[in-house]
Amino acid sequence: MFGSPTPTRDAAFAEFVRTSSRSLTRTAYLLCGDRALADDLVQEALLKTYLAWRRVRPGEATGYTRRVLVNLNIDRWRRRPPVPTELTEQPVADKGPAQVDDRDQIVRLLAGLPTQQRRVLVLRYFDDLSEAATAELLGISIGAVKSASSRGLAALRQHYQMADEGGLR
């Protein structure tokens, strides 16, 4: 009931936003592949975090917001119209022009993966979360994390090979 006064709480939250929003936005971008959507997702996740700020333990704010963010992203993808996914498990030729900035190539490759595999790869290899932390954040088993990671890496390996053969890297 009697926590820190609102101005102090707001200042702490604002500081948290300043120090964490860039990292969160990068995660969001890798998850959704769209800069504008990434900004929206982070804004929404941070707003939800603000509303729960009194319940967020110090030191766990980033993890809390990342969890909200990933769930928001899941929701966003679920709200999209159904998209044929037959090709997502198969290596697909990159339809982008060869002159596209190769920084974006991994984002396009990730977009071709099933959502779960994409989330696991981003959390494991960009956010450096352990398998256990990834499992907890996504609400799945460690075995499921290992499976998604293995399958995702396997799919990417083929993409990388095709890209190399096509001279896109």
Binding site: V17, S21, R22, L24, T25, R26, T27, Y29, L30, R35, A38, D39, V42, Q43, L46, R103, D104, Q105, I106, V107, F126
Partner: peptide, 10 residues
């Protein structure tokens, strides 16, 4: 590398 240019607009 892909994430490096991304900054937050928040």
């Amino acid at each position: 590398r892909a994430a490096e240019p991304i900054d937050s607009g928040v």
